[in-house]
Design a protein around this nucleic acid. Structure first.
Lengths: 284, 284
DNA sequence: CGAAGAGTTGAAGCTCGTCAATAATCGTGG
DNA sequence: CCACGATTATTGACGAGCTTCAACTCTTCG
Protein backbone atom coordinates (compact mmCIF):
# COMPACT_ATOMS: atom_id res chain seq x y z
CA UNK A 1 0.00 0.00 0.00
CA UNK A 2 0.99 3.62 0.08
CA UNK A 3 3.92 4.39 -2.11
CA UNK A 4 6.11 1.56 -1.02
CA UNK A 5 6.17 0.04 -4.47
CA UNK A 6 7.09 3.29 -6.14
CA UNK A 7 10.73 2.71 -6.96
CA UNK A 8 11.09 -0.93 -6.17
CA UNK A 9 13.69 -2.82 -8.13
CA UNK A 10 11.22 -5.15 -9.72
CA UNK A 11 11.31 -7.53 -6.79
CA UNK A 12 7.65 -8.09 -7.36
CA UNK A 13 6.96 -9.46 -10.75
CA UNK A 14 3.43 -8.22 -10.47
CA UNK A 15 3.88 -4.52 -9.85
CA UNK A 16 4.73 -2.31 -12.78
CA UNK A 17 8.00 -0.38 -12.59
CA UNK A 18 6.45 2.98 -13.31
CA UNK A 19 5.32 5.32 -10.61
CA UNK A 20 1.66 6.16 -10.68
CA UNK A 21 1.39 8.00 -7.43
CA UNK A 22 1.86 11.75 -7.21
CA UNK A 23 5.47 12.90 -7.20
CA UNK A 24 5.20 14.37 -3.75
CA UNK A 25 4.26 11.10 -2.10
CA UNK A 26 6.62 9.15 -4.29
CA UNK A 27 9.66 10.99 -3.10
CA UNK A 28 10.64 9.66 0.33
CA UNK A 29 12.80 6.56 0.50
CA UNK A 30 13.80 7.33 4.06
CA UNK A 31 11.77 4.97 6.25
CA UNK A 32 11.41 7.52 9.01
CA UNK A 33 9.76 9.88 6.61
CA UNK A 34 7.52 7.15 5.34
CA UNK A 35 6.50 6.25 8.82
CA UNK A 36 5.83 9.78 10.00
CA UNK A 37 4.02 10.37 6.75
CA UNK A 38 1.41 7.92 7.92
CA UNK A 39 0.59 10.11 10.87
CA UNK A 40 0.85 13.57 9.42
CA UNK A 41 1.02 15.29 6.07
CA UNK A 42 4.58 16.34 5.55
CA UNK A 43 5.87 18.79 2.97
CA UNK A 44 9.16 19.25 1.19
CA UNK A 45 10.67 21.27 4.01
CA UNK A 46 9.95 18.57 6.51
CA UNK A 47 11.36 15.96 4.14
CA UNK A 48 14.59 17.88 3.79
CA UNK A 49 14.93 18.49 7.50
CA UNK A 50 14.35 14.85 8.34
CA UNK A 51 16.66 13.70 5.61
CA UNK A 52 19.39 15.96 6.90
CA UNK A 53 18.96 14.68 10.42
CA UNK A 54 19.49 11.11 9.24
CA UNK A 55 22.66 11.74 7.27
CA UNK A 56 25.01 9.96 9.64
CA UNK A 57 24.62 6.25 9.07
CA UNK A 58 26.19 3.12 10.39
CA UNK A 59 26.13 -0.52 9.41
CA UNK A 60 25.93 -3.12 12.10
CA UNK A 61 26.45 -6.86 12.39
CA UNK A 62 23.69 -9.26 13.41
CA UNK A 63 23.38 -10.27 17.07
CA UNK A 64 25.04 -7.04 18.09
CA UNK A 65 23.66 -5.23 21.11
CA UNK A 66 22.69 -1.79 19.97
CA UNK A 67 21.87 -0.22 23.32
CA UNK A 68 22.22 -1.46 26.84
CA UNK A 69 19.96 -0.92 29.78
CA UNK A 70 21.07 2.10 31.70
CA UNK A 71 23.09 3.59 28.90
CA UNK A 72 22.96 7.29 28.26
CA UNK A 73 23.23 8.90 24.91
CA UNK A 74 22.94 12.16 23.11
CA UNK A 75 21.93 10.29 19.99
CA UNK A 76 18.82 8.50 18.89
CA UNK A 77 19.04 5.54 16.56
CA UNK A 78 16.74 5.02 13.67
CA UNK A 79 16.46 1.61 12.06
CA UNK A 80 16.93 1.97 8.33
CA UNK A 81 17.35 -1.69 7.45
CA UNK A 82 17.06 -4.85 9.46
CA UNK A 83 15.27 -5.81 12.62
CA UNK A 84 15.89 -5.26 16.31
CA UNK A 85 14.19 -6.13 19.57
CA UNK A 86 13.72 -4.50 22.92
CA UNK A 87 14.11 -6.87 25.85
CA UNK A 88 14.81 -7.18 29.51
CA UNK A 89 16.23 -10.00 31.57
CA UNK A 90 14.99 -11.15 34.93
CA UNK A 91 17.49 -12.22 37.55
CA UNK A 92 16.44 -15.84 37.02
CA UNK A 93 17.68 -15.63 33.44
CA UNK A 94 14.29 -15.31 31.80
CA UNK A 95 13.97 -12.75 29.08
CA UNK A 96 10.95 -10.79 27.95
CA UNK A 97 10.95 -9.25 24.52
CA UNK A 98 8.95 -6.05 24.60
CA UNK A 99 8.90 -4.91 21.05
CA UNK A 100 10.23 -5.34 17.57
CA UNK A 101 11.91 -2.50 15.75
CA UNK A 102 11.54 -2.34 12.00
CA UNK A 103 12.77 0.19 9.44
CA UNK A 104 11.43 3.60 10.34
CA UNK A 105 11.32 2.90 14.06
CA UNK A 106 13.23 5.03 16.50
CA UNK A 107 15.05 3.37 19.35
CA UNK A 108 14.58 5.22 21.48
CA UNK A 109 12.76 8.50 21.16
CA UNK A 110 12.78 7.96 24.84
CA UNK A 111 16.05 9.87 24.97
CA UNK A 112 14.17 13.00 24.00
CA UNK A 113 12.73 12.97 27.47
CA UNK A 114 14.82 10.71 29.67
CA UNK A 115 18.52 10.34 29.80
CA UNK A 116 18.84 6.62 30.21
CA UNK A 117 17.27 3.50 28.88
CA UNK A 118 15.43 0.90 30.94
CA UNK A 119 15.96 -2.04 28.61
CA UNK A 120 18.35 -3.48 26.05
CA UNK A 121 18.02 -3.26 22.32
CA UNK A 122 19.57 -6.02 20.25
CA UNK A 123 19.84 -6.66 16.55
CA UNK A 124 18.38 -9.78 15.01
CA UNK A 125 19.81 -9.18 11.57
CA UNK A 126 22.57 -7.15 10.11
CA UNK A 127 21.27 -3.64 10.01
CA UNK A 128 21.77 -0.10 8.99
CA UNK A 129 20.91 2.65 11.40
CA UNK A 130 20.89 6.41 11.28
CA UNK A 131 22.60 8.07 14.22
CA UNK A 132 20.55 11.15 14.97
CA UNK A 133 21.83 13.82 17.34
CA UNK A 134 19.06 14.49 19.79
CA UNK A 135 19.74 18.20 19.62
CA UNK A 136 19.08 18.23 15.90
CA UNK A 137 15.94 16.21 16.22
CA UNK A 138 14.52 18.48 18.88
CA UNK A 139 15.18 21.52 16.75
CA UNK A 140 13.39 19.89 13.82
CA UNK A 141 10.50 19.18 16.14
CA UNK A 142 10.48 22.77 17.28
CA UNK A 143 10.56 24.06 13.72
CA UNK A 144 7.90 21.70 12.38
CA UNK A 145 4.94 21.09 14.66
CA UNK A 146 3.70 18.40 12.30
CA UNK A 147 6.88 16.44 12.85
CA UNK A 148 6.58 16.85 16.57
CA UNK A 149 3.05 15.63 16.42
CA UNK A 150 3.91 12.69 14.23
CA UNK A 151 6.67 11.65 16.60
CA UNK A 152 4.25 11.91 19.48
CA UNK A 153 1.90 9.68 17.57
CA UNK A 154 4.55 7.04 17.15
CA UNK A 155 4.99 7.01 20.91
CA UNK A 156 1.28 6.72 21.49
CA UNK A 157 1.11 3.90 18.98
CA UNK A 158 3.89 2.11 20.74
CA UNK A 159 2.00 2.41 23.98
CA UNK A 160 -1.07 0.97 22.31
CA UNK A 161 1.00 -1.94 21.05
CA UNK A 162 2.29 -2.59 24.54
CA UNK A 163 -1.26 -2.74 25.83
CA UNK A 164 -2.18 -5.19 23.13
CA UNK A 165 0.84 -7.29 24.00
CA UNK A 166 -0.13 -7.26 27.63
CA UNK A 167 -3.55 -8.51 26.68
CA UNK A 168 -1.94 -11.13 24.51
CA UNK A 169 0.49 -12.43 27.07
CA UNK A 170 -1.95 -12.14 29.94
CA UNK A 171 -5.18 -13.55 28.60
CA UNK A 172 -4.64 -15.75 25.59
CA UNK A 173 -3.41 -19.31 25.46
CA UNK A 174 -0.25 -20.35 23.69
CA UNK A 175 -1.81 -20.95 20.29
CA UNK A 176 -3.68 -17.67 20.34
CA UNK A 177 -0.62 -15.77 21.45
CA UNK A 178 1.44 -17.17 18.63
CA UNK A 179 -1.29 -16.61 16.10
CA UNK A 180 -1.74 -13.04 17.20
CA UNK A 181 1.94 -12.29 17.06
CA UNK A 182 2.24 -13.76 13.59
CA UNK A 183 -0.66 -11.61 12.42
CA UNK A 184 0.92 -8.53 13.90
CA UNK A 185 4.44 -8.95 12.61
CA UNK A 186 3.30 -9.90 9.13
CA UNK A 187 0.99 -6.90 9.01
CA UNK A 188 3.84 -4.63 9.94
CA UNK A 189 6.16 -6.12 7.37
CA UNK A 190 3.46 -5.89 4.76
CA UNK A 191 2.97 -2.22 5.45
CA UNK A 192 6.69 -1.80 4.86
CA UNK A 193 6.46 -3.66 1.60
CA UNK A 194 8.66 -6.46 2.89
CA UNK A 195 6.66 -9.27 1.37
CA UNK A 196 8.28 -11.73 -0.96
CA UNK A 197 6.70 -12.16 -4.38
CA UNK A 198 5.25 -15.51 -3.31
CA UNK A 199 3.52 -13.92 -0.34
CA UNK A 200 5.97 -15.18 2.24
CA UNK A 201 7.98 -13.09 4.65
CA UNK A 202 11.68 -13.34 5.39
CA UNK A 203 11.86 -13.04 9.13
CA UNK A 204 15.06 -13.63 11.05
CA UNK A 205 13.31 -14.92 14.15
CA UNK A 206 14.21 -18.12 15.93
CA UNK A 207 11.78 -19.99 18.12
CA UNK A 208 13.74 -18.69 21.06
CA UNK A 209 12.67 -15.17 20.21
CA UNK A 210 9.10 -16.27 19.73
CA UNK A 211 9.16 -17.94 23.12
CA UNK A 212 10.64 -14.91 24.86
CA UNK A 213 8.07 -12.70 23.19
CA UNK A 214 5.09 -14.65 24.38
CA UNK A 215 6.34 -15.89 27.72
CA UNK A 216 6.45 -19.51 26.60
CA UNK A 217 9.17 -22.13 26.33
CA UNK A 218 10.89 -23.00 23.08
CA UNK A 219 9.61 -26.53 23.34
CA UNK A 220 6.03 -25.43 23.52
CA UNK A 221 6.45 -22.93 20.72
CA UNK A 222 7.84 -25.68 18.57
CA UNK A 223 4.85 -27.88 19.27
CA UNK A 224 2.39 -25.10 18.53
CA UNK A 225 4.06 -24.30 15.22
CA UNK A 226 4.03 -27.97 14.33
CA UNK A 227 0.32 -28.03 14.89
CA UNK A 228 -0.22 -24.84 12.90
CA UNK A 229 1.58 -26.57 10.10
CA UNK A 230 -0.53 -29.69 10.42
CA UNK A 231 -3.70 -27.62 10.44
CA UNK A 232 -2.70 -25.73 7.35
CA UNK A 233 -2.56 -22.37 9.06
CA UNK A 234 1.06 -21.33 8.86
CA UNK A 235 4.36 -22.47 7.43
CA UNK A 236 7.47 -21.28 9.23
CA UNK A 237 10.66 -22.94 8.09
CA UNK A 238 14.09 -21.46 8.60
CA UNK A 239 13.41 -17.80 8.31
CA UNK A 240 10.60 -18.03 5.82
CA UNK A 241 7.13 -17.34 7.13
CA UNK A 242 4.11 -18.12 5.00
CA UNK A 243 0.61 -17.58 6.23
CA UNK A 244 -1.43 -20.24 4.52
CA UNK A 245 -4.84 -19.45 5.97
CA UNK A 246 -5.06 -15.77 6.84
CA UNK A 247 -8.69 -15.88 7.83
CA UNK A 248 -8.26 -18.89 10.05
CA UNK A 249 -5.23 -17.44 11.75
CA UNK A 250 -6.91 -14.12 12.43
CA UNK A 251 -9.96 -15.78 13.80
CA UNK A 252 -7.90 -17.95 16.10
CA UNK A 253 -5.92 -14.93 17.25
CA UNK A 254 -8.85 -12.56 17.56
CA UNK A 255 -6.71 -10.18 15.59
CA UNK A 256 -8.09 -6.73 15.03
CA UNK A 257 -6.63 -5.24 11.93
CA UNK A 258 -6.20 -1.56 12.40
CA UNK A 259 -4.99 -1.77 15.94
CA UNK A 260 -1.49 -1.04 14.74
CA UNK A 261 -2.68 2.34 13.51
CA UNK A 262 -0.68 1.79 10.40
CA UNK A 263 -3.32 3.51 8.34
CA UNK A 264 -4.23 7.09 9.00
CA UNK A 265 -7.08 7.53 11.43
CA UNK A 266 -10.01 6.37 9.45
CA UNK A 267 -13.56 5.79 10.58
CA UNK A 268 -13.34 2.30 9.24
CA UNK A 269 -10.51 1.28 11.50
CA UNK A 270 -12.66 1.59 14.57
CA UNK A 271 -16.11 1.43 13.13
CA UNK A 272 -17.60 -0.84 15.73
CA UNK A 273 -16.10 1.20 18.47
CA UNK A 274 -17.23 4.48 17.03
CA UNK A 275 -20.74 3.15 16.82
CA UNK A 276 -20.86 3.10 20.58
CA UNK A 277 -20.73 6.85 20.45
CA UNK A 278 -19.43 9.43 22.82
CA UNK A 279 -18.39 8.53 26.30
CA UNK A 280 -21.08 8.49 28.89
CA UNK A 281 -19.77 11.24 31.09
CA UNK A 282 -19.36 13.85 28.43
CA UNK A 283 -22.58 12.94 26.75
CA UNK A 284 -24.50 13.10 30.00
CA UNK B 1 -23.74 20.27 32.73
CA UNK B 2 -20.01 19.82 32.94
CA UNK B 3 -19.46 22.27 35.70
CA UNK B 4 -22.48 21.09 37.62
CA UNK B 5 -20.15 19.95 40.34
CA UNK B 6 -18.27 23.21 40.35
CA UNK B 7 -19.57 24.10 43.75
CA UNK B 8 -18.31 21.23 45.73
CA UNK B 9 -20.41 20.09 48.62
CA UNK B 10 -17.74 20.33 51.30
CA UNK B 11 -16.83 16.68 51.19
CA UNK B 12 -13.48 17.17 52.87
CA UNK B 13 -13.77 17.45 56.57
CA UNK B 14 -10.60 15.65 57.50
CA UNK B 15 -7.79 17.87 56.28
CA UNK B 16 -6.48 20.35 58.82
CA UNK B 17 -6.67 24.01 57.90
CA UNK B 18 -3.19 24.86 59.08
CA UNK B 19 -0.10 24.69 56.91
CA UNK B 20 3.29 23.97 58.39
CA UNK B 21 5.37 23.55 55.24
CA UNK B 22 6.82 26.41 53.22
CA UNK B 23 4.22 28.37 51.33
CA UNK B 24 5.54 27.51 47.89
CA UNK B 25 5.48 23.75 48.37
CA UNK B 26 2.32 23.90 50.38
CA UNK B 27 0.44 25.64 47.68
CA UNK B 28 -0.36 22.95 45.16
CA UNK B 29 -3.11 20.72 46.36
CA UNK B 30 -3.96 19.87 42.80
CA UNK B 31 -2.62 16.37 42.24
CA UNK B 32 -1.82 17.09 38.60
CA UNK B 33 0.47 19.86 39.65
CA UNK B 34 2.07 17.65 42.26
CA UNK B 35 2.65 14.95 39.72
CA UNK B 36 4.06 17.17 37.02
CA UNK B 37 6.16 18.83 39.67
CA UNK B 38 8.03 15.57 40.02
CA UNK B 39 9.18 15.78 36.44
CA UNK B 40 9.83 19.48 36.00
CA UNK B 41 10.26 22.58 38.05
CA UNK B 42 7.10 24.57 37.77
CA UNK B 43 6.57 28.18 38.74
CA UNK B 44 3.62 30.22 39.84
CA UNK B 45 2.45 30.92 36.32
CA UNK B 46 2.36 27.23 35.50
CA UNK B 47 0.51 26.55 38.73
CA UNK B 48 -2.14 29.08 37.89
CA UNK B 49 -2.56 27.87 34.35
CA UNK B 50 -2.92 24.26 35.42
CA UNK B 51 -5.24 25.18 38.23
CA UNK B 52 -7.43 27.10 35.83
CA UNK B 53 -7.55 24.22 33.41
CA UNK B 54 -8.81 21.92 36.15
CA UNK B 55 -11.58 24.17 37.37
CA UNK B 56 -14.44 22.06 36.05
CA UNK B 57 -14.92 19.13 38.36
CA UNK B 58 -17.26 16.24 38.67
CA UNK B 59 -18.03 13.62 41.29
CA UNK B 60 -18.61 10.07 40.22
CA UNK B 61 -20.00 6.92 41.77
CA UNK B 62 -17.95 3.74 42.23
CA UNK B 63 -18.13 1.03 39.57
CA UNK B 64 -19.05 3.62 36.98
CA UNK B 65 -17.49 3.37 33.56
CA UNK B 66 -15.65 6.58 32.94
CA UNK B 67 -14.71 6.07 29.30
CA UNK B 68 -15.55 3.40 26.81
CA UNK B 69 -13.43 1.86 24.13
CA UNK B 70 -13.93 3.73 20.91
CA UNK B 71 -15.35 6.83 22.49
CA UNK B 72 -14.30 10.23 21.24
CA UNK B 73 -13.97 13.28 23.36
CA UNK B 74 -12.78 16.84 23.34
CA UNK B 75 -12.06 16.53 27.03
CA UNK B 76 -9.41 14.85 29.08
CA UNK B 77 -10.18 13.55 32.54
CA UNK B 78 -7.87 13.96 35.45
CA UNK B 79 -8.31 11.84 38.55
CA UNK B 80 -8.45 14.08 41.60
CA UNK B 81 -9.65 11.52 44.12
CA UNK B 82 -10.25 7.81 43.94
CA UNK B 83 -8.95 5.04 41.76
CA UNK B 84 -9.66 3.85 38.25
CA UNK B 85 -8.42 1.11 35.94
CA UNK B 86 -7.80 0.73 32.25
CA UNK B 87 -8.91 -2.59 30.85
CA UNK B 88 -9.91 -4.48 27.76
CA UNK B 89 -12.08 -7.51 27.25
CA UNK B 90 -11.38 -10.41 24.98
CA UNK B 91 -14.21 -12.00 23.06
CA UNK B 92 -14.01 -15.03 25.35
CA UNK B 93 -14.95 -12.82 28.28
CA UNK B 94 -11.48 -12.55 29.76
CA UNK B 95 -10.38 -9.13 30.89
CA UNK B 96 -6.92 -7.67 31.12
CA UNK B 97 -6.34 -4.69 33.35
CA UNK B 98 -3.64 -2.52 31.84
CA UNK B 99 -3.09 0.16 34.37
CA UNK B 100 -4.25 1.82 37.53
CA UNK B 101 -5.10 5.49 37.63
CA UNK B 102 -4.47 7.37 40.84
CA UNK B 103 -4.90 11.03 41.74
CA UNK B 104 -2.86 13.16 39.38
CA UNK B 105 -3.14 10.72 36.50
CA UNK B 106 -4.64 11.76 33.21
CA UNK B 107 -6.99 9.41 31.43
CA UNK B 108 -6.22 9.80 28.69
CA UNK B 109 -3.65 12.29 27.48
CA UNK B 110 -4.06 10.02 24.53
CA UNK B 111 -6.76 12.36 23.29
CA UNK B 112 -4.15 15.01 22.72
CA UNK B 113 -3.00 12.95 19.79
CA UNK B 114 -5.68 10.48 18.85
CA UNK B 115 -9.38 10.99 18.71
CA UNK B 116 -10.58 7.73 20.14
CA UNK B 117 -9.72 5.37 22.92
CA UNK B 118 -8.70 1.75 22.51
CA UNK B 119 -9.75 0.55 25.95
CA UNK B 120 -12.24 1.16 28.72
CA UNK B 121 -11.63 3.08 31.90
CA UNK B 122 -13.65 2.15 34.96
CA UNK B 123 -13.83 3.48 38.47
CA UNK B 124 -13.05 1.26 41.43
CA UNK B 125 -14.09 3.80 44.03
CA UNK B 126 -16.17 6.89 44.14
CA UNK B 127 -14.08 9.56 42.59
CA UNK B 128 -13.65 13.14 41.70
CA UNK B 129 -12.31 14.09 38.33
CA UNK B 130 -11.40 17.29 36.58
CA UNK B 131 -12.86 17.66 33.11
CA UNK B 132 -10.20 19.40 31.07
CA UNK B 133 -10.96 20.79 27.62
CA UNK B 134 -8.26 19.49 25.33
CA UNK B 135 -8.03 22.85 23.64
CA UNK B 136 -7.16 24.54 26.90
CA UNK B 137 -4.61 21.93 27.80
CA UNK B 138 -2.85 22.22 24.48
CA UNK B 139 -2.64 25.95 24.81
CA UNK B 140 -1.12 25.60 28.26
CA UNK B 141 1.38 23.19 26.76
CA UNK B 142 2.18 25.65 24.02
CA UNK B 143 2.61 28.48 26.49
CA UNK B 144 4.72 26.53 28.98
CA UNK B 145 7.30 24.19 27.50
CA UNK B 146 8.02 22.79 30.94
CA UNK B 147 4.44 21.65 31.22
CA UNK B 148 4.61 20.09 27.79
CA UNK B 149 7.74 18.29 28.74
CA UNK B 150 6.35 17.10 32.03
CA UNK B 151 3.27 15.72 30.30
CA UNK B 152 5.48 13.97 27.81
CA UNK B 153 7.35 12.46 30.71
CA UNK B 154 4.19 11.07 32.21
CA UNK B 155 3.52 9.32 28.92
CA UNK B 156 7.01 7.91 28.80
CA UNK B 157 6.66 6.74 32.36
CA UNK B 158 3.43 5.04 31.53
CA UNK B 159 5.13 3.25 28.69
CA UNK B 160 7.88 2.14 31.04
CA UNK B 161 5.26 0.78 33.41
CA UNK B 162 3.65 -1.16 30.61
CA UNK B 163 6.97 -2.75 29.79
CA UNK B 164 7.44 -3.71 33.40
CA UNK B 165 3.96 -5.19 33.48
CA UNK B 166 4.68 -7.14 30.36
CA UNK B 167 7.76 -8.54 32.02
CA UNK B 168 5.73 -9.30 35.08
CA UNK B 169 2.89 -11.08 33.33
CA UNK B 170 5.14 -12.81 30.84
CA UNK B 171 8.03 -14.10 32.89
CA UNK B 172 7.17 -14.36 36.55
CA UNK B 173 5.15 -17.00 38.33
CA UNK B 174 1.96 -16.26 40.19
CA UNK B 175 3.55 -15.47 43.54
CA UNK B 176 6.13 -13.18 42.01
CA UNK B 177 3.53 -11.39 39.92
CA UNK B 178 1.39 -10.70 42.93
CA UNK B 179 4.33 -9.64 45.04
CA UNK B 180 5.52 -7.28 42.35
CA UNK B 181 2.15 -5.71 41.88
CA UNK B 182 1.74 -5.18 45.59
CA UNK B 183 5.12 -3.49 45.74
CA UNK B 184 4.23 -1.26 42.85
CA UNK B 185 0.81 -0.15 43.96
CA UNK B 186 1.91 0.48 47.52
CA UNK B 187 4.86 2.50 46.30
CA UNK B 188 2.57 4.65 44.22
CA UNK B 189 0.13 5.19 47.04
CA UNK B 190 2.95 6.01 49.36
CA UNK B 191 4.27 8.65 47.01
CA UNK B 192 0.81 10.18 47.08
CA UNK B 193 0.81 10.14 50.84
CA UNK B 194 -2.08 7.70 50.94
CA UNK B 195 -0.72 5.61 53.79
CA UNK B 196 -2.74 5.08 56.91
CA UNK B 197 -1.13 6.02 60.21
CA UNK B 198 -0.56 2.34 61.01
CA UNK B 199 1.32 1.79 57.75
CA UNK B 200 -1.52 0.05 55.97
CA UNK B 201 -3.11 1.10 52.71
CA UNK B 202 -6.80 1.40 51.96
CA UNK B 203 -7.14 -0.13 48.53
CA UNK B 204 -10.50 -0.81 46.96
CA UNK B 205 -9.31 -3.82 45.01
CA UNK B 206 -11.04 -7.16 45.00
CA UNK B 207 -9.27 -10.38 44.15
CA UNK B 208 -11.07 -10.26 40.82
CA UNK B 209 -9.13 -7.14 39.90
CA UNK B 210 -5.90 -8.68 41.07
CA UNK B 211 -6.58 -11.73 38.93
CA UNK B 212 -7.40 -9.68 35.85
CA UNK B 213 -4.28 -7.63 36.38
CA UNK B 214 -1.94 -10.56 36.48
CA UNK B 215 -3.65 -12.93 34.11
CA UNK B 216 -4.56 -15.40 36.83
CA UNK B 217 -7.80 -16.80 38.19
CA UNK B 218 -9.44 -15.55 41.35
CA UNK B 219 -9.04 -18.92 42.91
CA UNK B 220 -5.33 -18.94 42.44
CA UNK B 221 -4.96 -15.38 43.64
CA UNK B 222 -6.81 -16.32 46.77
CA UNK B 223 -4.48 -19.23 47.37
CA UNK B 224 -1.40 -17.09 46.84
CA UNK B 225 -2.61 -14.43 49.22
CA UNK B 226 -3.37 -17.08 51.79
CA UNK B 227 0.16 -18.29 51.54
CA UNK B 228 1.56 -14.75 51.77
CA UNK B 229 -0.42 -14.41 54.94
CA UNK B 230 0.87 -17.68 56.32
CA UNK B 231 4.42 -16.72 55.48
CA UNK B 232 4.11 -13.38 57.19
CA UNK B 233 4.65 -11.34 54.04
CA UNK B 234 1.39 -9.52 53.49
CA UNK B 235 -1.98 -9.00 55.11
CA UNK B 236 -4.81 -8.13 52.75
CA UNK B 237 -8.23 -8.24 54.35
CA UNK B 238 -11.23 -6.41 52.99
CA UNK B 239 -9.71 -3.36 51.50
CA UNK B 240 -6.89 -3.00 53.95
CA UNK B 241 -3.44 -3.89 52.68
CA UNK B 242 -0.56 -4.22 55.10
CA UNK B 243 2.88 -5.20 53.99
CA UNK B 244 4.34 -7.08 56.90
CA UNK B 245 7.74 -7.91 55.45
CA UNK B 246 8.75 -5.30 52.91
CA UNK B 247 12.20 -6.74 52.31
CA UNK B 248 10.94 -10.25 51.84
CA UNK B 249 8.24 -9.13 49.46
CA UNK B 250 10.59 -7.08 47.34
CA UNK B 251 13.07 -9.86 47.15
CA UNK B 252 10.42 -12.32 46.09
CA UNK B 253 9.15 -9.88 43.49
CA UNK B 254 12.51 -8.74 42.24
CA UNK B 255 11.12 -5.27 42.66
CA UNK B 256 13.31 -2.43 41.52
CA UNK B 257 12.45 0.68 43.42
CA UNK B 258 12.87 3.66 41.19
CA UNK B 259 11.43 2.04 38.14
CA UNK B 260 8.28 4.05 38.59
CA UNK B 261 10.33 7.22 38.12
CA UNK B 262 8.45 8.76 40.94
CA UNK B 263 11.54 10.57 42.07
CA UNK B 264 13.23 13.10 39.84
CA UNK B 265 15.99 11.66 37.69
CA UNK B 266 18.67 11.04 40.24
CA UNK B 267 21.94 9.21 39.87
CA UNK B 268 20.89 6.98 42.71
CA UNK B 269 17.81 5.70 40.99
CA UNK B 270 19.81 4.06 38.26
CA UNK B 271 23.23 3.84 39.77
CA UNK B 272 23.98 0.31 38.71
CA UNK B 273 22.78 1.06 35.24
CA UNK B 274 24.79 4.24 34.91
CA UNK B 275 27.88 2.38 35.98
CA UNK B 276 27.71 0.37 32.81
CA UNK B 277 28.46 3.58 30.99
CA UNK B 278 27.72 4.79 27.55
CA UNK B 279 26.31 2.54 24.93
CA UNK B 280 28.72 0.63 22.81
CA UNK B 281 27.89 2.18 19.50
CA UNK B 282 28.28 5.77 20.52
CA UNK B 283 31.34 5.09 22.55
CA UNK B 284 32.98 3.33 19.63
C1' DC C 1 -33.91 -10.54 56.24
C1' DG C 2 -32.59 -11.97 51.80
C1' DA C 3 -29.77 -11.51 47.81
C1' DA C 4 -25.65 -10.52 45.64
C1' DG C 5 -20.85 -10.16 45.83
C1' DA C 6 -16.40 -11.59 47.65
C1' DG C 7 -13.42 -14.94 49.55
C1' DT C 8 -12.13 -19.79 50.73
C1' DT C 9 -11.42 -24.63 50.08
C1' DG C 10 -11.12 -29.25 47.82
C1' DA C 11 -10.80 -32.42 43.92
C1' DA C 12 -9.70 -33.26 39.30
C1' DG C 13 -7.65 -32.23 35.02
C1' DC C 14 -5.33 -29.72 31.34
C1' DT C 15 -1.95 -26.65 29.63
C1' DC C 16 2.40 -25.79 29.64
C1' DG C 17 7.20 -26.40 31.64
C1' DT C 18 11.22 -29.35 32.58
C1' DC C 19 14.49 -32.74 31.42
C1' DA C 20 16.73 -35.25 28.08
C1' DA C 21 18.10 -37.15 23.82
C1' DT C 22 18.43 -36.66 18.82
C1' DA C 23 18.40 -34.52 14.38
C1' DA C 24 18.94 -30.75 11.32
C1' DT C 25 21.17 -26.46 10.13
C1' DC C 26 24.59 -22.85 10.24
C1' DG C 27 28.93 -20.66 10.65
C1' DT C 28 33.77 -21.10 10.74
C1' DG C 29 38.19 -22.63 9.90
C1' DG C 30 41.15 -26.04 8.11
C1' DC D 1 35.59 -28.63 -0.16
C1' DC D 2 34.52 -30.97 4.04
C1' DA D 3 34.71 -31.21 9.15
C1' DC D 4 33.85 -29.22 13.33
C1' DG D 5 31.27 -27.24 17.04
C1' DA D 6 27.41 -24.32 18.09
C1' DT D 7 22.94 -23.04 17.49
C1' DT D 8 18.27 -24.30 16.35
C1' DA D 9 14.49 -27.44 15.96
C1' DT D 10 12.08 -31.66 17.11
C1' DT D 11 10.18 -35.36 19.97
C1' DG D 12 8.93 -38.09 24.16
C1' DA D 13 8.11 -38.80 29.01
C1' DC D 14 6.97 -36.81 33.11
C1' DG D 15 5.58 -33.40 36.40
C1' DA D 16 4.12 -28.87 38.21
C1' DG D 17 1.48 -24.80 38.13
C1' DC D 18 -2.45 -23.15 37.32
C1' DT D 19 -7.44 -23.63 35.84
C1' DT D 20 -11.98 -25.38 36.21
C1' DC D 21 -15.90 -26.76 38.64
C1' DA D 22 -18.39 -26.79 42.65
C1' DA D 23 -19.78 -26.16 47.24
C1' DC D 24 -19.68 -23.39 51.13
C1' DT D 25 -18.93 -19.28 54.20
C1' DC D 26 -18.64 -14.53 55.19
C1' DT D 27 -19.60 -9.81 54.27
C1' DT D 28 -22.18 -6.01 52.38
C1' DC D 29 -26.12 -3.61 51.32
C1' DG D 30 -30.83 -2.45 50.15
Amino acid sequence: MLNSAAIIESSAGATPPTCFVPVETCRPKNPLIEKLGKFATLGGQEFDALERVCRSRKKLAPRETLLREGCRSSFVFLILKGMAVRYRYLSNGKRQIMGYLLPGDLCDAHFLVRNYLDHDIGLLTDAEVAVIPIRELTSVMAAFPTVRRALLETMVTERAMLREWLLNVGQRNARQKLAHFICEISERMQSLGQVNPDGSYSIALTQVELADTMGLTVVHVSRCLQRFRAEGLVEWLRHQLTIVDVQGLRQLAGFDEGYLHIARDSPGSCASAAARGLCSIVAA
